[in-house]
Each structure stands twice: as C-alpha cells, then as structure tokens.
Design a binder for these strands. Structure first.
Length: 458
DNA sequence: TCGCCTTTGAAGATG
DNA sequence: CATCTTCAAAGGCGA
C-alpha cells in the first residue's frame, strides 16, 4: 500500500522525467476521494464534520459566512510571487552584482508590502563589507542576520551603531562597537570573557522553507480571518503548506536553502547550538511527561491481547496528562499528504549537504532536486503513510501536542475491524484498517462526526 | 512580563 | 544510525 501510495504521490521517484514534475500531488485515488468528500479544500467543510465544536473554531469566520476558509484556498486566487530571477523593481542590481549572494527573498517584498528584510529606521550600514553591497543585499542582511558575528573585511570602517533587528540582545544594540568588532584582546579575565559572552549577539537560525512560507502568507490568512491567534493561523498555514503543489513548495525549499547558504557565509562560525537555551522553556518538562505518556501507550500496546478500542482509551488517558490545548482545526483529511513531521520525509528537499554541494541548478531541473523525495524514505515512514486516515489524524491531534507523533510509529499497526469498535468510540476512532480506503472510512466519519477536538475536552 | 500554543524543517544532542 | 530536542515566526492569552 505504501509503495503504491508513494508511486502515486511521487511519480518522479521512478520516472524522473520532466513530464512528471507537474502536479505532483496529483490525483491519487485518495485525493479523488478527498475531493469528493471534502470538496476542493477540506477546510471548507470542517464545520460540517465538526458540528459540535464550541471552541475557538466558532468565531473562526474567515471571510464571508459560509465560506470559512474557502478563499484561503491556495490555488484559488492567491497570486504566487515572482521567482527571484523575475524580480527586480526593488533590487535594481542584477543578482550577479550582489557578491554572488543574491537576495533570496526579494520577491517577498512586493508581496508583503514591506520588505521581509527591511531597513531599520534611519538606515543601516551594511554589516558585511566583504560583500558587494546593494539594496538587495543590504536589506537581506540587515533584517535578520546580525552583523556582529561577521569578521569585518575592513575593520576600520565606522560602525553606525544602528540596532539590528535580528539581534536579540538589547545590550548589543546599544553597543557602539560590538566586542566581535573590537581588536582582539590578548588576555581577558574570565569575568570579561563571560561578560562578552553575554553580550554576544543572538544570531537567529535561518528560516526554513515552512517558516518562509508562513512569513509570506500569514498576513493574507490573518487578513481573511477574524481569528488572530498565531496558533490557529499556523494550523491553517500548516495545512495550506501541505496543499501546496510540489513546485510551489520547491520555491520555498530553494529559498530556505539560499538562506542557509547565505547565513553560513555571513556567520561561518555560527552553529544552531549557539542558540540552545536562549529560549527559556518549560516545554522541556512537558515534553518529557509527554514522552512518558507515550511510553505508557506503547507499553499498553505491547499487550497484544488488548482490543484496539481499549488501546484507544489508553491513549486518551495518556493524552489527558498533557497540558490542555486547543486544536483550532478539524482533523486533516486522509492521505492528503503524509502530514506533519513524517510528511517531511517525503516533502523535504535535498539534504543540506546535498543542497549545498550542488549550487543552484537550473530552475527546470532544480525543482526536482530541491524536493527529491526520499528515495530513502524509511520503511516505518511508509508504513505510517499507509496507515494514515482521517481518524488516525484525529487521534493524533488529540493525543499529541508537539509533533511527538511525527517520529513515532503508528499507534495501530494492525487492521482494525470497525465492527469491533464501540459505537461511541467511532466518534474518534483510533484508526481504520490499513486496507480500508479513505473513501470507505470517511462516510463513517461523517455519520459520526468527530468528537471534539480540544485536547482540554478530555 | 514571560512563556505557551501551533505549524514544519533544519540541525544539534542523545542513546 | 535512529530518535529526540530545540529553535526559527507570530500574536493572543494565561499565569
């Protein structure tokens, strides 16, 4: 099943011809089924699927009543930004003049109305003099990447002292001459070192493809929704991301790759590790307890004699131990995409090393390279794909809160006869048989609308 | 005021 | 090597 799914979903895998590049989310049977039951966008119908929802979803009026998210529909009406190679009004110089580091996100500018990498009030001196500078480069670097991590090619150049948006440390912002720009001091006391450590600017991680997508689309989604909560918006964006065509996603993967590339050039010594612990988190605790809960589930599942619905209850209990949180959206339609983290196994672009190893390939072929779909997809991932169903996703949504499931094996690994499940539990069944197709499962779901989806409801 | 929520992806950490 | 954890953005919300 999983093999067929992959083939349907990713024809390029076996036939990497250009003809197959288009419409990669092409009509697998599951898609057709989804379209049949969910409409062109699953999101259109969530209200019908979840008639009893009483939480935030209620005031989730995005656009005209009845439309819900209709016009959030991806392909419908949301203009795609021009490819970097197309742009330019905002960045007059040719990419080649940008020190071989063209602004990877320049096309976002006209989209957002304001530059993604905007110049701070008062302007900004280019922090990376080694690079040829123009408006494009300047705006890029000025927005997110701290200049202070970069060893100046011309140390003598005056510093403006203008704060950099990407620099988190307020101390550094007020520093006329950041430590890293100062001449090396041969001997420093531990105190001094520590002090400078604290002053060390916080260079943020480069945005990944999804983050770039969110950044671009958030405003649109927010504009069309009354709901402003980012958590909700992000759920929408997550789904929209999955609904993007492979080519559209490829754009963002490519941009992200360029971001990383640029980032690594700007901050050769920077490591993601540098930012570890920058955010104070209690999340750690929560995730640990979540892991423990998952462990309980697995332990229970190890008891193979348990009926599936018993296992489901076990899972429900495990989920209770988590902090209540709201799911703003109904479960995702089945097989719409691999979904979630494990979906990334399919959707992800080339590995960083591969991506970096191969410089920007011609657009035509690059999109193929940019999202190669894992020929190396792991067996368990394929199994997960095969087992995905609307119900499972529902269960997943209810039982997880932070992507833990993304790396977990499917909770149910054997076919589950629907008849064996208590009717009440059908409101949120753990899974359908792997052999049961979505079009078989969905009517059941509709007949028995999924129960609600706030985790706090339990 | 701080951290959580929520999403995906990249990368470091861990076993 | 596989899995887990953290952090990128965003803004409302609760403590």
């Amino acid at each position: 099943i999983s093999f067929q799914y992959l083939q349907m979903k990713w024809p390029l895998l076996d036939v990497p011809s250009s003809a197959t590049v288009k419409d990669t989310r092409s009509p697998s049977p599951a898609h057709l089924v989804n379209l049949k039951f969910y409409g062109l966008e699953k999101e259109h119908h969530f209200q019908f699927l979840n008639p009893n929802i009483t939480f935030p979803l209620e005031h989730w009026a995005c656009g005209p009543v009845g439309n819900s998210l209709t016009h959030l529909s991806l392909e419908a009406g949301i203009p795609r930004p021009p490819h970097p190679s197309e742009l330019s009004p905002y960045y007059p110089l040719s990419p080649g003049a940008v020190g071989q580091i063209p602004h990877p996100l320049g096309w976002l500018v006209p989209q957002q109305g304001q530059p993604m990498y905007s110049l701070p009030p008062g302007g900004f001196r280019h922090p990376y003099p080694a690079l040829a500078m123009n408006a494009s480069m300047s705006s890029l670097v000025s927005s997110r990447f701290s200049p202070h991590m970069v060893a100046p090619a011309h140390p003598g150049l005056p510093t403006s002292g203008i704060p950099h948006p990407a620099i988190v440390s307020p101390i550094v912002k007020q520093e006329p001459a950041p430590p890293s720009l100062s001449p090396a001091v041969s001997a420093k006391s531990p105190v001094t070192v520590k002090k400078e450590e604290e002053k060390k600017p916080h260079v943020k991680k480069p945005l990944n493809a999804f983050m770039l997508y969110m950044k671009e689309m958030r405003a649109k989604v927010v504009a069309e929704c009354t709901l402003k909560e980012s958590a909700a918006i992000n759920q929408i964006l997550g789904r929209k991301w999955h609904n993007l065509s492979r080519e559209e996603q490829a754009k963002y993967y490519e941009l992200a790759r360029k971001e990383r590339q640029l980032h690594s050039q700007l901050y050769p010594t920077w490591s993601a590790r540098d930012n570890y612990g920058k955010k104070k988190k209690r999340k750690r605790e929560k995730q640990l307890s979540q892991t423990q809960s998952q462990q309980q589930v697995h332990e229970a599942e190890a008891l193979s004699h348990l009926e599936p619905w018993v296992l489901w209850n076990v899972r429900a209990l495990a989920s209770k131990s988590k902090k209540p949180c709201v799911q703003y959206l109904p479960p995702e339609k089945p097989c719409d995409s691999p979904a979630s983290s494990h979906g990334s196994m399919l959707d992800s672009p080339a590995t960083p090393s591969a991506a970096l190893a191969s410089p920007a390939a011609p657009a035509a072929t690059h999109s193929e390279q940019a999202q190669p779909l894992s020929l190396t997809t792991k067996p368990e991932a394929r199994a997960q794909l095969a087992l995905h169903s609307a119900a499972f996703l529902s269960a997943k949504a209810a039982a997880t809160s932070s992507g833990q499931m993304g790396s977990q094996p499917p909770l149910l690994s054997r076919p589950l006869p629907l008849g064996s499940m208590p009717t009440a539990l059908l409101t949120s069944p753990p899974s359908f048989p792997a052999t049961l197709h979505a079009h078989q499962a969905l009517p059941v779901l509709q007949a028995q609308p999924l129960s609600l989806v706030t985790k706090s409801a339990h």
